[in-house]
Design a protein around this nucleic acid. Structure first.
Length: 106
DNA sequence: AGCATGACGGAGG
DNA sequence: TCCTCCGCCATGC
């Protein structure tokens, strides 16, 4: 059990790492699970400032469109997702089909 | 301690 | 459906 104001980034890291290959989560969803439903932008910020070795390609916008600032742009993001079996159509994915949620928080 | 930033989200046109 | 504007809030300077 983490304190309400526990390091936001740390919680984001654990969630991102938990996303299985071929599935995705949205920035807003991750923010909400971290206790800050309005901090979707912050999650994006952490993706940019934080550990680059995490599977950030599995994090997309709520409408299924890909991240603007991903290395290589949306094209690079699309390539990374397709590699995991995610079907990308015009730089967007069928969010309702690939969205994933952790069974429970530890 | 305060200001500007930003890999978003939702509303409005 | 696409484009633009406003609001949110942790992080970095």
């Amino acid at each position: 059990m983490r304190k309400p104001n526990a390091d936001f980034a740390e919680t984001v890291y654990e969630l991102v790492i938990a996303i299985p290959s071929g599935r995705v989560m949205t920035y807003g969803q991750i923010a909400a699970l971290c206790g800050r439903p309005r901090a979707a932008r912050i999650v994006g910020g952490i993706a940019h400032w934080g550990d680059p070795s995490l599977p950030w390609q599995r994090v997309v916008k709520k409408d299924g469109s890909l991240a603007e600032g991903f290395p290589g742009g949306t094209a690079g993001h699309a390539a990374a997702l397709e590699k995991e079996g995610v079907e990308v159509h015009d730089y967007k994915i069928e969010i309702s089909r690939y969205l994933w949620q952790p069974n429970h928080l530890s």
